[in-house]
Structure formats: structure tokens, C-alpha cells
Amino acid sequence: MAQRQEIEAPSKVILIGGSAGSLSVLLVVLPLLSERINAAVVLVMHRHTRSEDLLEALLASRASLPVRDIEDKDQPQRGIIYTAPADYHLLFEPDGSFALDSSEKVNYSRPSIDVTFESAARVFGTRAIGVLLSGANADGAEGLYEIEQHGGITIVQHPETAEVDYMPRSALQLFPPAYTVRPGEIAPLLVRLASDISAARD
């Protein structure tokens, strides 16, 4: 059993939110994230309750980092990709651990990207990196803005490259994020933003 003290806290927490049209982007991004990044990666996807294991299996087959389901009060660890479970909101406790919540849907969604992003902004502040991808819903825009306001780094998929541009456009209408990028640029950018200084010098 994992003991708390053995866990190395990641220097960054990368939060990726998406809905319709975002899976194909993840399949471009995830294979390029390697152990070089000193970050935990947390995916919040709008998904059907019953498709639970299929999404994890698909992502795990493509990602180079391990993909793990979240259990309540797990501590996010460096170099692990976590998926927010269907039918729960994903929040963070003050100590950075995951906390689940099955209260009412937000933006017709559970998990809601806004809920996770807002919680991450409060808990991780400048350590948070928020990424908002393709989607047919405004969920995530407000939350990404919260990350920005708490000093985190914000990235939006360029709407012209999005299968469904409503979600990224909603964010761009709200505030100018630090980066607006194409799918192919996301992983290199994350690696640059979240690498150890020592690793970057290698």
C-alpha cells in the first residue's frame, strides 16, 4: 500500500478538459507526454456513464505514461495520467488530494470541467496548467478563467482546429488565455512548461 510520505508531489498539475471532438486531440497529445514532465495529468472528459472502462483502455493503449482511475482521496503523482470518473465531480482537497462529489450536474455535466478547474485553481494556484479542448458546451471556460486569475497557465485549442469549436470559443470570448494552439503544439508546449529545470538542461 502506498504510504503518503513516499509520494513525490508533482511540481505542476496539468488539467485537460474536453467534450465532443476532444478524444482525437488527446490521442495526439498523450503519446508525446513522457516521464520528463514533472506533473500529474488529470483528464476531465464529458462521457457516458456506461462507457467507463473503454475510454481508459483506449487512452492507456496510446499514452506513454500510465493511465489510472481516480479513487477518492488519492494523491496525484508525478508522471501519471488520471481520468475523472463518470458521474462524479472531481475536486481537490487543500492537501492536493482528489475528492469526488456526486452532487447535481453543472452545465448539464458530471464531471463538470468548470468544477474541477475552479477547485484546481484554488488549491494549486500557479502550479495549475489548464487546457481546454474541443467541445459542444461552454463548460470549462469559467474554470479556465479561474486558473488564469489564480496565476496558473491557460491553454486553449485553436477553435479553427476543433471538431466542435463552441467550448474553446467560449473560453476565448471570456478572456485571452496565455496560449491558443493547434493539437500538434499542445504536447511540446506542456513538456516545455512542466519539465524539471534539470531535465530541460539535459
Binding site: 465531480h89 475536486l91 487543500p94 475528492a99 462529489d101 452532487s103
Partner: peptide, 12 residues
């Protein structure tokens, strides 16, 4: 109580 969730409930 888990702080993050309690915060959300009271804010709501």
C-alpha cells in the same frame, strides 16, 4: 467534511 465539496455546497 471534505473541504472542497463542503465549500461548493455552502456556496451553492
Amino acid at each position: 467534511y471534505a473541504r472542497a465539496s463542503l465549500h461548493r455546497r455552502i456556496a451553492r
